[in-house]
Design a protein around this nucleic acid. Structure first.
Length: 424
RNA sequence: GUGGGUGUAGCUCAGCUGGUUAGAGCACCAGAUUGUGGCUCUGGGGGCCGUGGGUUCAAAUCCCAUCAUCCACCCCA
């Protein structure tokens, strides 16, 4: 169909774009304040990057990627997330050879072939940040705090921050053993998926939403019960730093992020009341990822936040700003004589930095005024035969409802001054 | 991939058990003694009733299919 967009995609039309711009600008601002530099990577990458970087067994790679062959017979994939691409760019551009640590942020569209529902789309948008080169738990805390700080600046309240530690390759074998030992007696009662998970990745059983699996996992040993001394200490430090900054959180022993690359800290931020897809952001540490992608052993932490869900939450909490940009001036003509003068004046106003517009539909004076009123313009400049003869224009203050004659020679200076008074 | 709800004007919807030219509110446009917006009044434009098939003398209305959309499962932002 020529007039319908692909499933799960959205047009962001003028009145909504204002909101998006504002949110994105808040994010850029906060990132700069926290010392992060923007990076822009391609929308698509070699498929292999995600297979290796995100993990072959994840849902994203198994069934959600937009993958296709290009004309050169290479398999490429629209990015389903941006951590792997940023890691790739970090390596390809040898950013590890520069000042350390490397702190980056990004913003842009991601693609996952999912069934759309409230808060879930096939093309959606994320802002995110990544830090490469430091294993300091203070960085985990910084990254979490930055995300929470961002939400707060947007005016969001009542968010839930969940944190957990998923350990490292050192503690994984112990976790596996402990979990398999725990679930062995319950195995028959688990759902089909979880019976698979038992062999492949018993950790994921903890994440299962099926009631009987959740019940079976009630007292399962959590990852934080099996941490090696280093991981345990790291997690303690993260919590200490969060406490220091007054960030409140809940330890969620069940929190297991969906992507394979996470180690140590994992966190997720939820907004109640936006539907079943309540996670508005998540992230964690991924100390193994850079090596998986062919780089030197390098620690990393980061997060991604979903803009559509943030906007949903802002709307639910009634904190979404929706200020359409308004022109400063609307030029109105009475009668055809003034047309040329008005047209020239319009462009002089614009060159002077005043947002101005005029009617292009040949409307009557009354209709021009009506239109001007609806756009919310502050001043109407009116020119007709009488004004032309006197070399003036009428400047009408639309909210006050009064007007005065101003010489055409002075009108730009006059309006420039009015404008500066309003913006101050 | 699975399940349920909904598709009538730009928007929100009415039109129930099939029966004349398919309606309302809002929005849009134009007028209200000819140079002035917001309020009011009057008028106007605009609808392959999602699409395709079927039942019937007759379908927006009943049946089937299909597509889209919404919500949920799964997973995640």
């Amino acid at each position: 169909m020529l007039t319908s967009r692909p499933r799960g995609t959205n047009d962001i039309i003028p009145c909504e774009v204002e909101k998006w711009r504002w949110i994105e600008s808040q994010f850029c601002q906060i990132c700069e304040q926290y010392g992060y530099k923007e990076i822009r990577t391609p929308i698509f990458e070699h498929t292999e990057l995600f297979q290796r970087g995100v993990g072959d067994t994840t849902d994203i790679v198994e069934k959600e990627m937009y993958t296709f062959m290009d004309r050169g017979n290479r398999s490429v994939t629209l990015r389903p997330e941006n951590t792997a691409p940023v890691v790739r760019a970090y390596l390809e551009n040898k950013l590890y050879a520069g000042l350390q640590p490397v702190k980056l942020f990004y913003s842009g569209p991601m693609f996952r072939y999912d069934r759309p529902q409230a808060g879930r789309f096939r093309q959606f948008h994320q802002v995110g940040a990544e830090v490469f080169g430091s294993n300091d738990p203070a960085v985990d805390a910084e990254v979490i705090t930055m995300a929470m700080d961002f939400y707060a600046r947007l005016g969001l309240n009542n968010l839930l921050l969940h944190i957990n530690s998923v350990g490292c390759p050192e503690c994984r074998p112990a976790q596996r053993v402990a979990l398999k030992k725990y679930f062995q007696p319950h195995l028959g009662g688990l759902c089909r998926d979880c019976q698979d998970r038992f062999e492949k990745n018993p950790l994921r059983i903890l994440d299962c939403k099926v009631e009987r699996c959740a019940a079976a996992g009630e007292n399962a040993p959590a990852t934080i019960d099996c941490l090696c001394p280093d991981c345990a200490e790291h997690f303690e430090q993260v919590k200490k730093y969060l406490d220091l900054l007054g960030i409140s959180y809940t330890i969620d022993r069940r929190l297991v992020r969906g992507l394979d690359y996470y180690t140590h800290t994992a966190f997720e931020i939820m907004a109640p009341d936006i539907g079943a897809q309540s996670s508005i952001g998540g992230g964690g540490r991924y100390n193994g990822l850079i090596e998986i992608c062919g780089g030197p052993p390098t620690p990393g932490v980061g997060y991604a936040l979903g803009i559509e869900r943030i906007i949903l939450a802002m709307e639910r909490q009634d904190v979404a700003k929706n200020e359409a940009s308004r022109p400063d001036v609307f030029v109105v003509t009475a009668g055809p004589e003034a047309g040329d003068t008005a047209f020239k004046l319009l462009f002089s106003l614009r060159s002077a930095g005043i947002a101005a517009d005029k009617d292009y539909l040949g409307r009557s004076l009354k209709a021009q005024m009506k239109y001007a009123g609806k756009t919310g313009v502050r001043y109407v400049v009116m020119i007709g035969a009488e004004e032309l003869a006197l070399g003036v224009a009428l400047v009408r203050d639309m909210s006050a409802g009064d007007q005065e004659a101003v010489s055409l020679d002075d009108i730009i200076a006059y309006l420039t001054q009015k404008k500066s008074m309003v913006t101050e």
